[in-house]
Amino acid sequence: MIIQLDVCENPEGFSGQIAADNVAAIWELLEQVKDPEIPVLSLRDLGVLRNVENSAGKIVVTITPTYSGCPALDVMQEDISKVLTANGIVDVEVKTVLSPAWTTDWISTEGKQKLEKFGIAPPAGATLANRPERCPLCASSATSLISEYGSTACKAMYQCDDCKESFCYFKVI
């Protein structure tokens, strides 16, 4: 898992648009790769995409898991390879690193806005407080915890005291 390589040798849908040495263009291209469980966020928004480099002609993409047991990690690796391969970049390695450990601070400002628009309260404040700033639906700041876990390890369940809707909160970690 840590040092799992994912090398694609059979390009499908080769479009030949991107030269393999154009690292900036590859970053752009990888915007298409979304979190499989929160499809409004790209891996870059999420801070999971750590690095892209050209190592003697091979494109090495480095990602880091959000939670240790995140089942989305394997899908992310596959999706990265697929997007690059479809764009003619065949010599690809997707590498997973653990250190430094992922933190919700790495979610971009834009990513946080996207989360809220999607109905998930973005991570807020320090680890200790760790509760949503406001309801993502009606913006009320009066909210109550329902459960410290939700549909995925990275979320907790809250309910808005005003509009009464329940919603997910992306926990600070």
């Binding site: 898992m1 840590i2 898991p65 939670y67 240790s68 047991g69 995140c70 089942p71 653990l98 876990y149 995925t152 390890a153």
Partner: peptide, 12 residues
């Protein structure tokens, strides 16, 4: 979810 954290830890 907590179980998953531990199983992830085991995998690493």
């Amino acid at each position: 979810n907590i179980a998953l954290d531990y199983i992830g830890r085991a995998r690493m």
